[in-house]
């Protein structure tokens, strides 16, 4: 009884943290000043937010079949989303997208 309650609390906390990261990623995507920081915010949503959500779901999974599937999804997300972010940033660099000029720009 107490163990299942503990698991529920842990998964709830993980899900909440994941949701917070996703929301902060979305806010960052809208508010950050230049392309690279926005890419960073976007990839954060994918990599960290989704991983936390999946970990939270993993604690709630009934049966090992769904557990294995969730772990596989997590592994693939951990490979693909940083790769996509890197490719995006690299393409922007090739295209001549500049970093923000000075500290004043970045802080705004």
């Amino acid at each position: 009884m107490s163990l299942s309650l503990l698991i529920d609390i842990a998964s709830g906390a993980l899900l909440l943290a994941g949701c917070l990261l996703v929301v902060s990623g979305a806010v960052g995507l809208l508010r950050l000043p230049d392309f690279y920081t926005r890419t960073h915010a976007g990839s954060l949503t994918d990599a960290a937010g989704a991983t936390l959500l999946l970990l939270g779901l993993l604690l709630q999974a009934d049966g090992w079949q769904s557990g294995v599937r969730l772990v596989l999804i997590m592994l693939f997300l951990l490979v693909t989303s940083p790769t996509a972010a890197h490719a995006l940033a690299q393409a922007a660099r090739r295209d001549g997208e500049r970093l923000p000029a000075g500290d004043d720009e970045g802080r705004r």
Partner: peptide
Amino acid sequence: SEYRVLRVASKVLMPF
């Protein structure tokens, strides 16, 4: 050479 991460990741993912 500039897209090494992309290349390695796609090569790894392809069989899957």
